[in-house]
Computed example of a mutant assay.
Amino acid sequence: MTVRLAVSAAVRADPGRVWSELTDWAGQSRWIPFTTVRAAGATTGIGVRVTALSGFWLARLPVGLLDRFIVTDWRPPDDEPGRLEVLHLGPYFTGPGVFTVVPGDGATRIECVELFDLPAGRITEVPVRLLLPVMRRGFGESLRRLAAICES
């Protein structure tokens, strides 16, 4: 089963500032609640490997929702929209995610589209469809937190 999650937010900040905050992996904990993010090796560009945990670490054991992904496209904004594309590698979901940073008159728009392939097929379909509106609101709130950080 594939789930599509799309959210966006207007940010009264320069596109470069939005990009900088978006791609500050460790700093994402400031705008994504209960989440720690770690990048292994390089922290910029295509090929960056990231581990995000919504929960907590018990020594080396992750407790919560673990998401591993790799950056597959990296185009900072200048005169054109910026594009950060990732491929989620699991273990709980896989699939592509795209953040677009779109310059505008007086505001920058950040758009995110995630396509999650869930494990266990139809068993997860009903619970996920019920949770999708909650996930959308939560992710939208995270983008609003990102906007507030960029605007401060």
Rank of each mutant, 00 (worst) to 15 (best):
M1V: 12
R4S: 13
A6L: 13
V7L: 06
S8N: 11
A10K: 10
A10N: 10
R12V: 08
A13M: 03
A13T: 00
D14L: 08
G16C: 00
G16R: 00
R17V: 08
E21Q: 15
E21L: 15
L22P: 06
D24S: 05
W25V: 08
W25Y: 06
A26Y: 13
Q28S: 15
Q28D: 11
R30S: 12
R30C: 10
F34M: 12
T35S: 03
T36C: 05
T36W: 05
V37A: 08
R38K: 14
R38E: 13
A39W: 07
A40W: 12
G41Y: 00
G45I: 10
I46W: 00
I46M: 05
G47W: 04
V48C: 05
R49K: 04
T51G: 03
L53I: 02
S54M: 15
S54E: 12
F56A: 15
G64V: 09
L66S: 06
V71A: 01
T72D: 03
T72E: 03
T72G: 01
D73K: 04
W74P: 00
P76F: 06
P77G: 02
P77D: 06
G82Q: 00
V86P: 04
G90H: 05
G90I: 10
G90V: 07
T100C: 09
V101Y: 02
V102M: 08
P103L: 01
D105E: 14
G106D: 01
A107K: 07
R109V: 07
E111C: 11
E114W: 12
E114F: 12
F116R: 09
D117F: 05
D117Q: 11
L118M: 14
L118P: 09
P119S: 14
P119N: 15
A120H: 14
G121F: 10
R122V: 15
I123Q: 11
I123K: 11
V126P: 05
P127E: 07
V128L: 07
R129D: 12
L132D: 00
P133Q: 07
R136I: 00
R136M: 07
R137Q: 09
F139K: 08
G140C: 04
L143D: 05
L143T: 04
L146I: 05
A147N: 05
A147C: 00
S152I: 07
